[in-house]
């Protein structure tokens, strides 16, 4: 296997693409938004349930590439149980990690999400990774759709 490719498609990403977590419609969702990446045709709907400023449940649905599917899957695991402020902080750090051009960075706080660090070497794929996050953000801000454009 090409080592450059391994850097992008980390084992965790491949695993979450093959077996996405929380991929279902959340019937009791009190917020949802649809995200679309016109470049790839990635489509994702994010469902969120909140209580007392906390994400009590979250799920996603849709189809997309391995990067966007794994990103959505890992995102649901990362923000479940977090406060809205914490979720937003994770989103910010995630975005910084995949867009920053600095080589030496410490994003260990992001835990599993750090597997997406390799995406920054593939500018056209960054939007695949951030689409679920933009969609979650849209759902929490009360707008119906998000786009990476």
């Amino acid at each position: 296997m090409n080592p450059d490719l391994r850097e992008l498609y980390q084992e965790t990403i491949l695993d979450h693409n093959r077996h996405p977590r929380n991929r279902r419609k959340l019937e009791e969702a009190d917020a949802e938004a649809h995200g679309h990446n016109p470049l790839c045709g990635d489509n994702v709907t994010v469902y969120v349930q909140t209580e007392d400023g906390k994400v009590t449940d979250i799920s996603f649905d849709g189809n997309g590439c391995a990067i966007s599917t794994a990103s959505a899957s890992l995102m649901t695991e990362a923000v479940k149980g977090k406060t809205l402020e914490e979720a937003e902080a994770i989103f910010k750090e995630f975005q910084e990690m995949v867009t920053s051009t600095e080589q030496e960075q410490d994003h260990s706080e992001l835990g599993d999400l750090e597997v997406f660090a390799g995406v920054r070497e593939y500018p056209v794929r960054i939007k695949c990774a951030t689409l679920p996050w933009h969609t979650l953000n849209a759902a929490l801000k009360g707008s119906e759709s998000a786009t990476t454009e």
């Binding site: 090409n2 490719l5 790839c40 990635d42 590439c65 599917t69 593939y122 794929r125």
Partner: peptide, 14 residues
């Protein structure tokens, strides 16, 4: 089972 964008990136690596 493989999204075309992943095919594209995989082929590019080759």
């Amino acid at each position: 089972g493989v999204h075309p964008h992943d095919i594209g990136t995989f082929l590019d690596a080759e």
